[in-house]
Write a protein that binds this DNA or RNA. Sequence first.
DNA 1: ATTCGACTATTTTATAATTACAGTCCAAAA
DNA 2: TTTTGGACTGTAATTATAAAATAGTCGAAT
Lengths: 194, 194
Amino acid sequence: MTDIKELFRVIIIKKSSQVFNYYGYKKTTMDDIANAVGKGKSSIYYYFNSKEEIFKAVVEYEADILRIELMNSVNEADQIIDKIRNYVLTRMRVYKKVNNFYKAVTNDMLLHLNFIDETRAKYEMLEINLVEDILEEGFLMNKFVVEDSHLAAIAIVTALRGLELPLFNNIDEHSFEARLDQLLNVLFMGIIKR
Amino acid sequence: MTDIKELFRVIIIKKSSQVFNYYGYKKTTMDDIANAVGKGKSSIYYYFNSKEEIFKAVVEYEADILRIELMNSVNEADQIIDKIRNYVLTRMRVYKKVNNFYKAVTNDMLLHLNFIDETRAKYEMLEINLVEDILEEGFLMNKFVVEDSHLAAIAIVTALRGLELPLFNNIDEHSFEARLDQLLNVLFMGIIKR
DNA sequence: ATTCGACTATTTTATAATTACAGTCCAAAA
DNA sequence: TTTTGGACTGTAATTATAAAATAGTCGAAT
């Protein structure tokens, strides 16, 4: 694969990202993509073998954006508690921005695509590992009390996912922040008096 | 409404519960229901005005079962911590048993039914109030540290909902229990060392 | 190495014909 | 008077069929 060819692949990925975002996977045609990059349809097939392959590349591209934003926001925090807080806030903020990735992970209409299962599993692992690392660090710094950081990370990630719906749907910004703070408070302190 | 008529309504509700559970709302016909109770279809209309009305009655009937089981299991516990634990475990255990209610709350294919929104809102309030009462009691007994028990209850109920998918889908019994224990542990103790 | 017009095989959609079903009516039975 | 069910209707869902759209191929031209 030459560099110039790889460059065009990236252009196609970025343009397709917009087109998929606008029409959705099913409704975007190869001609839509070809028009968006200013080439004939057949030319697209010189760079990618199928529509699904393009979409997969788009989803992985967006997953990368999310991963990088998560890591940056976690690294920016000094205090270990702020790392978790940043993680949660960034996840909520960026998640919907990478719309094709978001749909790939949440929309069951895309489950028939071959790579989706793997993508979901991969991203779940990424999330769990990220949270696990933070918990681990907190434990080593003698700030956190969690012993089995892997299982705790799973529990936290799982629970956070429960916030997606009430977050993205209905409620207003203020209710959201209040709920999130409350959740973080319980997460940090627990409910038992010691 | 005479007593005898009310009695038949209950019979229809119980039988319909089974039929709906077997075929799903859309696929069960009024004739299915009529056959199940051993009457003609028109007779059913003497007791209920529509198919939707029957389904609503079934869902409320099952919601009642869930409510009673939740309250019993919470009352059975002496320790305040066991109340929460019982609540979570019972919720998980009974939730899928009341299948029509479960579908009414989770399956978006039923959203077009008029009463569903109200039912969901009502049940969410029930859950939040139940958890809130437990938290309140724990606070008064000086065992819990939560100040705003209402918001904390919302956060907990919301988070628990996140467990439904990993719970009911894939994973085995053992993984489930491990995840749940871990979640409860974080919920009780938090992650910060004090 | 890269592009694209012309082509094909397969899906998707649009339309019409058929069937299934929720709900009504009324006469008969209890 | 209360309860039942057979016969009926209008509408919605399903199926059958034809027409259009589209993913992917191929080979000739840059």
